[in-house]
Amino acid sequence: MRELRYTAPASLAEAVSLLSDAGQDPRILAGGTDLLIQLRAGVRDAGHLVDVKRIPELNVLEASPEDGLRVGAAVPCASLVEHAAAGELYPGLVEAAALIGSTQIQSRATLAGNLCNGSPAADTTPALLALDATCVTAGPGGSRTRHVSELLVGPGRTSLEPREILVEIRVAAPAKGAADAYQRLIPRGEMDIAVVGVGAVLQIADGRVASARIALGAVGPTALLAEEAAASLVGKAPDEAALERAGALATSAARPISDKRGSAEYRRDVVSVLTRRVLASAIERARRRA
């Protein structure tokens, strides 16, 4: 096992500079719940761990009906789950974050890590994709902002540059009468990886769907949008027939594989059922807000 260097920079500029020394094979350490296991198992290697948890910009956590949500990349899921305003405004994202791992894992795991780890079955990614969240990053070229959808490339991969740090995830303030929801299917009650995950944001105005976004997890190489399904709802009353149709259309957006968690056919069936349930949950929340 080669020598490992550990640093905990106190500023973003210092972190960017440390990461720029490619010869050291640096890796960003946030919660470490994936990285430390991968390093120990030899799945990933690193010569230098840059612990980003002491950088103030990465510890921001703010939620308000005016300015929306800002979650720093080092904020553990537990802090987000305990944040009353975040839960009030983005119940779908918070329920997704609350599903990740155990209490112990929640204390460490971050939304940013869930996203950057690039698992197709990540719970918070469909929730963020449905919310059209954006990512603010820092790198040698300065600060960049892009949509979560632009970050998703493939299993275990993102479009982040090797020296680019995810600083924070931002979500716009919820539109009037809009609400989000996330649910997943796992074979037991807790502590498992999604067979299928579905996130949705729905806006209701005058009893009809004004806008909708539906994102699917664990049924493709990355989380993906079910655009046809979402479009089918717009302008319609959100009744059972509309949900049934959206569920069926979401199935055609899914590109699942068969693995130990479920066959492709089973996953397609689950997408339809789960999409209906998630939409129903988002509708109920949106009605309370409208």
Partner: peptide, 24 residues
């Protein structure tokens, strides 16, 4: 990080001490 036998409190939050590097 699956079994919780190594649970400790780090700044009042429960963590698996096997998933925390000592310098952290």
């Amino acid at each position: 990080g699956d079994c919780g036998a190594c649970s400790v409190l780090l700044d009042d939050r429960v963590v698996c001490s096997c998933l925390v590097l000592a310098p952290e």
